[in-house]
Simulated scan of single mutants.
Amino acid sequence: MNYPPPPPYGSPYGYPAYGPQDHPQAITIMILGILGLLLCQFLGPVAWVMGKKALNEIDASGGAIGGRSSVMAGYVCGIVSSILLILTILFIITMVILTVLGVLDSSSSTY
């Protein structure tokens, strides 16, 4: 029995690769989310906004665009790093206010 030769593209088993193409920014969003979580929290809001936009595009495509899991990972990492950024900013503001009011000033205490 003669079988046709495998196509020059697709999977290594000779079948063409079908399925939706990943969103063009899926890997970028995931990398930004992870970097925002680990190194620079200022990248978190960027990953959050880009992730939300990409998720909306994936949902609106009706299955024509894939990569939802990569986008979701970057989106969640962006949310977490944004929350950590807000908490860090609030902590710094609190410390500055307490220092200005003299609560943390050690020279004003009398022993």
Rank of each mutant, 00 (worst) to 15 (best):
M1Q: 15
M1P: 13
N2T: 14
P6K: 12
P6N: 07
P7D: 13
Y9P: 00
Y9I: 06
G10K: 04
G10V: 08
S11H: 04
P12Q: 09
Y15Q: 11
A17G: 09
Y18C: 01
G19W: 11
D22N: 14
H23F: 06
H23N: 10
A26D: 12
T28M: 07
T28C: 04
I29Q: 02
M30K: 14
I31S: 15
G33A: 10
I34H: 15
I34F: 13
G36K: 03
L38K: 15
L38D: 15
C40K: 06
C40W: 09
Q41F: 13
P45V: 07
A47R: 00
W48S: 05
M50W: 14
K53N: 15
L55P: 05
E57M: 09
G62Y: 00
A64Y: 05
G66T: 01
M72R: 06
M72V: 05
M72P: 05
G74P: 02
Y75I: 00
V76N: 02
V76Y: 02
C77M: 06
I79W: 02
S81N: 03
L84E: 06
T88W: 06
I89Y: 08
I89C: 09
I92T: 06
I92N: 06
I93A: 11
I93F: 05
V96F: 05
I97Y: 04
V103D: 09
S106K: 14
S109K: 08
S109Q: 12
T110N: 10
Y111G: 14
